[in-house]
Design a binder for these strands. Structure first.
Lengths: 125, 125
DNA sequence: GATTTATATTAGCAATTACTAATATAAGAA
DNA sequence: TTCTTATATTAGTAATTGCTAATATAAATC
């Protein structure tokens, strides 16, 4: 490359690796297993219906019954059931049976994430 | 409904609302604007390529050049560019020009989220 | 056992997504 | 000015997603 522009790190007065091209340093490796797990979690949340379900469960006191969620969210019973199943697979909700009723609650992971998101919202306002 | 099963809250010894059906309490309202913003952020991250980009940028010291990200992630130049554009729109990355080079860094929001995700990973092991 | 209710699972389809190739724009060198 | 390089934007398409309707399963009642 003919440009010889300074790389990003040369400006921080602390060179941290050999320059492999004129503008750039290498990019660190990332842990593939971590990526897969995180993306499963993030993509489960990254949908209107599913995130709304998580937020409603999180805002309730105690566990919430499917039938209530169904009425609140306003899509079909099967749609809600599938959404909850996806959230459960991603480790974001807990579920228990009680007779013919199914109750859903948030996992600790989900609660922590919602907390962080709430913090970001507040900081951004 | 003919079942008359106890609702979820009756077990916590603290009734918190009128029972609108035999099994259930109401579901709290959620703030629609918050949902939209959060889902934009979460869905931007909920994709292999884009999350990998964020993680690589986060793991680097200082800002990273597009051309380095492109080589690291291994999809087309246009694919990387579109991914970065989506992340920028979601407020997860910063960008600056320097000559013909473009450098990307993480926003504070993104850093906080990555921290939380790392914490969850550690807790879950 | 038959019937009803709650909800999970399956099948199908329109809409959306994530990517490549092509093109446009910007910057630097000759 | 032309040419080259870096990278954003556009167009197109195969794959994936999110939903409804239908069906299956589980639990309760008579």
């Amino acid at each position: 490359m003919s440009r010889d522009a300074p790389d990003a790190t040369s400006q921080s007065k602390q060179p941290n690796g050999t320059t492999e091209s004129a503008c750039c340093t290498g990019v660190p490796e990332v842990e593939e297993d971590d990526l897969v797990a995180d993306v499963q979690l993030l993509s489960a949340l990254g949908n209107d219906t599913r995130y709304e379900l998580v937020c409603r469960i999180g805002a309730a006191e105690g566990d919430v019954c499917v039938c209530d969620l169904e009425a609140a969210v306003g899509i079909s019973q099967s749609g809600v059931s599938q959404a909850l199943s996806r959230l459960y697979s991603a480790g974001l909700v807990t579920r228990r049976k009680e007779g013919s009723w199914r109750y859903y609650g948030l996992t600790d992971d989900a609660e922590q994430l919602l907390d962080t998101l709430a913090t970001l919202r507040t900081d951004d306002e």
